[in-house]
Amino acid sequence: MTTVRDTAETIRAARRPEDLFGSAATDSAGRQAGRRRYHRLAAAVHPDRAGAGEAAVAGDAFIRLVQLYRQWLAVAPATIELAGKYGSYAVGELHARGSVADLYRSGTDSIVKIPRRTQANRLLAGERNALRDIAAVAAEHAWLRPYFPELIDTVDHRDAATGEHRAINVLGAHTTGFVTLEQVRAAYPNGLDPRDYAWMHRRLLRCLAGAALAGWVHTAISPANVLIHPRQHGVVLAGWSFATRPGAPAAATLGALDYPPEIRDAVSPATDVHLAHGLLLTMLGDRAPAPMRTFAAGCRGSDPRLRPDAADLLGEFDDLLDRLYGQRRFRPFELPKGQ
């Protein structure tokens, strides 16, 4: 039986992309074979699936695997063209690997999000509905627009060879300069300065207020799904595949998240409040001051009815910051070089 460490060693030993994926394919069959090989390796070393003693090894191998695959895709020209309702989209290099879907560049303006398995089609369909409803609310409340991905098209694709159907979403690629909180956490393993995370959390609370207004619960607020623009202090809440209507069980869950009790019963905007404050504690680590830990604890109680609304928390969080740090000032934030 192949172990995580065995697969990690195979990836570590590769000196060039071709060692893992074969020659840079110019035909669709070769390209699909390389993609299947990537998916098998990625599943074997994904950090979310690794045991406690293998997380570091798996994480390093996963990062290296993604680097090699991106290099391979840069050589292998895109041969897959997807026809949406409003345009056609060439599937380019891998942009990111999500929980249930892979995201590929398509030109300079679009990201094509393709579920890895047909079972995830329902999740991509849920994302479509959530982003459409959020866009409708943002049309009336312009302050919401910067906080969410833009759904620009959808593709219902049937593979000619296998007959499998894929529900594919095309998102706006306005991500230049953005990084994930996962990357930020890797750059600051001992925790962020709370004064730096303050603006990120305030904007995340705005995201949650907007989602609640649109009638959706994100349910997957993790470091990988929160994008920030360090210099411009921008925040985008991505990863809407698990979005769920209030009152229903979560559409899906992530193994790495500490969920509140209602997750498999009936989620609500309070579910996102719980997750967002778990994220706050994760990002700050031991640097979180006691009053901020107390604040987070009040947002993570077991009874969702007793958790504050995200919209109300905006003022309460500002009051906490005033008590801790006094008058607010703009704090430039940058990742260390090389991150």
Rank of each mutant, 00 (worst) to 15 (best):
P249V: 14
T271K: 15
A256L: 09
L257P: 10
A248T: 02
L254I: 07
L257D: 08
T271S: 14
A252N: 08
T271G: 07
P249G: 08
L257K: 11
L275H: 03
A252L: 06
A266T: 04
H277N: 10
P260R: 09
E262L: 00
A276L: 08
L279S: 03
P249W: 06
A270Q: 10
A276R: 08
P261L: 09
E262T: 02
L254K: 08
D265A: 13
P269C: 05
T253Q: 13
G247R: 02
A251N: 11
V273N: 04
R264W: 06
G278H: 07
A248R: 14
G278C: 04
G255E: 14
Y259W: 05
H274K: 04
R264L: 04
V273W: 01
Y259M: 08
V273P: 00
P261D: 04
P260N: 06
P269W: 02
H274D: 15
L257S: 12
V273A: 06
L281A: 15
A256S: 13
V273H: 05
P261C: 03
L280M: 14
V267T: 12
A248C: 05
G255V: 12
P269D: 03
T253W: 00
D258Y: 01
I263G: 02
V267Q: 10
L281G: 11
E262W: 01
A251G: 08
T253F: 01
H277D: 03
L281S: 03
S268H: 07
A266K: 11
G278A: 05
A256N: 12
L254C: 07
H274F: 15
A266S: 14
G278E: 09
A252W: 01
H277C: 09
A266P: 12
L257Y: 11
L257F: 15
A252F: 09
G247S: 02
P261E: 01
L275T: 01
L254D: 13
A248Y: 03
T271D: 14
G247K: 02
A252V: 01
L275S: 02
A250H: 02
L281M: 13
D258L: 09
A270H: 12
A276C: 12
H274Y: 15
L280Y: 01
I263E: 03
L254R: 15
A248E: 15
A256T: 13
P249I: 13
A270K: 13
I263A: 03
P261F: 02
L254S: 14
D265N: 03
P249Q: 12
L279T: 05
D272A: 07
L279I: 05
A276F: 11
G255Y: 00
A248I: 00
L275N: 02
A252T: 06
L254G: 09
H274M: 05
I263M: 13
T271M: 12
R264G: 06
G247H: 00
A270D: 14
G255F: 00
D272N: 10
A276S: 15
A256G: 01
V267M: 11
P269Y: 00
P260E: 10
Y259E: 12
G278I: 10
A250I: 01
L281V: 05
T253N: 00
Y259D: 13
L279V: 06
A250S: 15
A252H: 05
I263S: 04
R264N: 11
H277L: 05
P269T: 10
P260D: 10
T271E: 12
A252Y: 04
T253I: 15
R264A: 10
A256Y: 00
L279C: 04
G278D: 04
G255Q: 14
A252C: 01
Y259T: 07
G255C: 02
A276M: 07
L281K: 08
